Amino acid sequence: MSAIGHALAVAGSMTWEILWALILGFLLSAVVQAAVRKATIVRLLGDDRPRTLAVASLLGAASSSCSYAAVALARSLFRKGAHFTAAMAFEIGSTNLVVELGVIMALLLGWQFTAAEFVGGPLMIVLVAVLFRVLVRKRLLAQAREQAERGLAGSMEGHAAMDMSVPGEGSFRRRLFSPAGFTSVAHVFTMEWAAILRDLVVGLLIAGAVAAWVPDSFWQAFFFTGHPLASALWGPLIGPVVAILSFVCSIGNVPLAAVLWNGGISFGGVVAFIFADLLILPILAIYRKYYGIRMTLALLGIFYAAMVGAGYLVELLFGTFGLIPRERSATVLSEGISWNYTTWLNIAFLLLAAVLLVRFFRTGGREMLRMMGGSPDAMAAHDSPGRDDRPAS
């Protein structure tokens, strides 16, 4: 019982440390998503030219941070006419280039890891695009599209089908600060929390258990910390494997990344580990349902190679410029709750979150939560409350 209590204490301390940053990140993401319509996204992703992939990455960064929702949305874009490579670039951007991920990484790991994430993400997308052009044939793409058109539902399919952007014309500021804009931001904010909450809780619990129960000596031996070259070569190779087996995706893998960094994994290994949220076993099962077994194997191989390659490139680049932290002091366990800036920020942002939650439930939120895991057809029949310009009563 004492061991379980210790693990829960570690998980609780980490949760308290990152709470305000999570709320801030999701709020910024909600503001951006409220201004970007999905029809616009589909129109811009019709090929795999470099400019299109850059646009796909940026649109992904402005989209959902939930890995399951990102995978479902990428399939939806593919079915509506987006190029498969562009849809995958969007998927990578929406899980690895989002604001909330960068904020949490800076808070737990340090700004260098946030910078590495936003440098490594585009590198991974470039590698994925090159590998798709070289290895994936038109016949396989045609088979994947045929499978995608069958409309088999997966996790977060209903969430991916939702368009909660602000309706109407006018300037961005005018639409955002209108009653409909307030509603749209509240809807996106709450639905994003609902989408990632499971993975976040599981990730924190796993990170707490690993930090409390696994001795540093194990990680030091496992990551070859006494051999700098071997460690740098091994980290990006093993990082994605640890992520795949941990079943943790979205933002939930950042606390575990902090534990692994303190344990001795290389800088590039942390980056590759974070990227691998798109290859965990449940998501591989969804790929098989969406695109068939052959494309799933292609995605597994190409994504893994791109993650490893991006990890090596980031390790080399940041090492050359002396940007890799020398101290392994990621935030894993604090001394508990005290009246410091973290507590005051948590209180302020919890109040803000409460305001958004009230708006969400007063404008049809319960029905949206029920439809969240349902089919796109059910969502298409739903008239989103975010499209109602009238203020809530």
Rank of each mutant, 00 (worst) to 15 (best):
G181E: 07
G181V: 08
S184P: 05
V185I: 09
T190D: 09
T190L: 15
M191P: 02
A195H: 13
A195V: 10
I196R: 04
R198S: 15
R198Q: 15
L204S: 05
L205H: 01
L205C: 02
I206N: 05
A209D: 07
A209N: 03
V210G: 06
V210Y: 07
A211H: 12
S217H: 06
W219K: 06
Q220S: 13
Q220L: 05
F222N: 05
F223K: 01
F224S: 13
G226H: 11
G226F: 04
H227R: 13
H227A: 13
P228I: 08
P228Y: 09
A230M: 15
S231R: 14
S231C: 10
A232M: 14
A232V: 05
W234I: 03
W234D: 09
G235A: 13
P236N: 08
L237S: 00
I238W: 12
I238M: 02
G239I: 00
P240A: 11
P240G: 04
V242P: 01
V242Q: 00
A243M: 13
L245G: 06
L245R: 02
L245C: 09
S246E: 04
S246Q: 06
S246A: 15
V248C: 10
I251Y: 12
G252M: 10
N253C: 09
N253S: 05
N253P: 04
V254N: 07
V254S: 06
P255D: 10
L256E: 10
A257C: 06
A257D: 11
A258D: 14
V259T: 01
L260H: 08
N262M: 03
G264C: 02
I265N: 01
I265T: 00
S266Q: 10
F267A: 02
F267Q: 00
F267H: 11
G268A: 04
G269W: 05
G269C: 04
V271S: 01
F273H: 05
F273V: 00
I274R: 00
I274T: 14
F275Q: 06
A276S: 13
D277E: 13
L278Q: 12
L279N: 03
I280H: 04
I280N: 02
L281I: 12
P282G: 00
A285T: 09
I286S: 13
R288H: 14
R288W: 11
K289V: 15
I293F: 13
R294S: 08
R294Y: 12
A298F: 03
L299C: 02
L299M: 10
L300R: 00
L300D: 00
L300E: 07
G301K: 00
F303K: 01
Y304K: 01
A305N: 03
A305K: 12
